[in-house]
Design a protein around this nucleic acid. Structure first.
Lengths: 211, 211
DNA sequence: ATTTTTTTATTGAACGTTCAATCAATAAAA
DNA sequence: TTTTATTGATTGAACGTTCAATAAAAAAAT
């Protein structure tokens, strides 16, 4: 069925199939044959479009990271106000975006997270993302708190986001998105309150189901 | 070199070698030959003592979990007071016990965490541990807060502990134990304060380097 | 004490399996 | 007819497991 211009279609197909395979049997058992079967193509095509299995895995991780980044920036751009509290809430909400926390994506993300410990290629990607979350949080908190307090708050908030995320990915029931968002936001409120910041009541956000 | 009574010695040797191998090259590349080389024995011995590679991996995870559990209960037993705040602090400190967060153990723990998503055997172990942490926190918080508040607080605190732990395992510099303990404790204080609990100034703990 | 026998621990080559990568053959579109 | 996309059998490497052979210690016998 060879038509011209198949490349972008196949790449997307195979990346999606990779997540499906990892969701199904885990990274260790996600063989090229299984991935190819999910995409409805043959195994050889993977080397053709990605140069090999490693290339496909890296492309998949890149996709997840860029989706996550866009989910955050999209919410921040949609803000009416420029208040730091609003930006922080948007960062929290973006990290618990539906597209990121449901089944396949979450499990794939966690699998890459673990394997990035020993794969320099993936480690670089993961660190860029980690630092971005920390830097975003830190920059907004800096508008409300002194430097050291802002840094510690960013570290703690980043840890809480990742922790909720991680625990959600591991429980059989999956992550309760609304609860995770609520807990992270309540923590933020406590954090600011403890440092004497007068919290403007959190404005309701477009996609949020939270009051 | 066969002496009698080698079994407990070899088992311990191989479990330690497993962590060393995973620390070195990750779970995916921790082959039986590499593990055996770390222990200074031949590959065949693994099947002899553990019935196969899977048996060794499960035994290694069990070891890590029981060490973690003992680190927590030891600190709680050593408490002079019975105040819930003291127990909570002990739970936090125990989870950041030195033996748990240094190099090999931390990376092995994270590797198992990820692979437990698709290995029922490991998943059971991991869930027992997760629930224990949550239940311990919840039980102590219940002495200070109403039921639902206690549950949410336990969820959030557990997430923060795991998140700090996880981020520590992934950064090249490793986890800053003292900082992690401090952040988790500060969060606990904020949490209780926000719910109107009068925080008795945190008693200095034996192993803690924190004022 | 010394030698022989038995028991126990350990080795490592061989085996069967699985996987990723390759590439000549093929088939559809241009 | 040419170009482009795709296939799938084949190849070679790597892995976990097995098991007959071996070697050392312990026990028994001299």
């Amino acid at each position: 069925m060879p038509k011209v211009g198949m490349e972008p279609i196949r790449r997307q197909q195979l990346i999606k199939a990779t997540m499906a395979a990892i969701d199904e049997v885990g990274l260790a058992d996600a063989t090229v044959m299984r991935i190819a079967r999910h995409a409805g193509v043959s195994a050889g095509i993977i080397s053709h479009y990605f140069g090999g299995k490693d290339g496909l895995l890296e492309a998949t991780m890149r996709q997840i990271l860029s989706d996550l980044g866009e989910a955050v920036t999209a919410r921040r751009r949609a803000l009416a106000t420029n208040a730091p509290e609003a930006h922080l809430a948007a960062i929290i909400d973006g990290n618990f975006d539906r597209s990121q926390v449901t089944g396949p994506v979450a499990k794939t993300w966690l699998a890459f997270w673990a394997s990035s410990m020993h794969q320099p290629q993936l480690q670089r990607l993961q660190q860029v993302n980690d630092r971005r979350l920390y830097a975003n949080l830190c920059h907004q908190l800096r508008r409300l708190l002194p430097r050291e307090e802002a840094r510690d708050a960013a570290r703690a908030l980043a840890a809480m986001i990742d922790g909720l995320w991680l625990r959600g990915a591991l429980t059989p029931e999956g992550l309760d998105t609304d609860r995770a968002r609520r807990l992270a936001r309540e923590y933020l409120d406590q954090l600011l309150h403890a440092h004497g910041v007068v919290t403007t009541p959190t404005a309701p956000h477009p996609v949020s189901t939270e009051s």
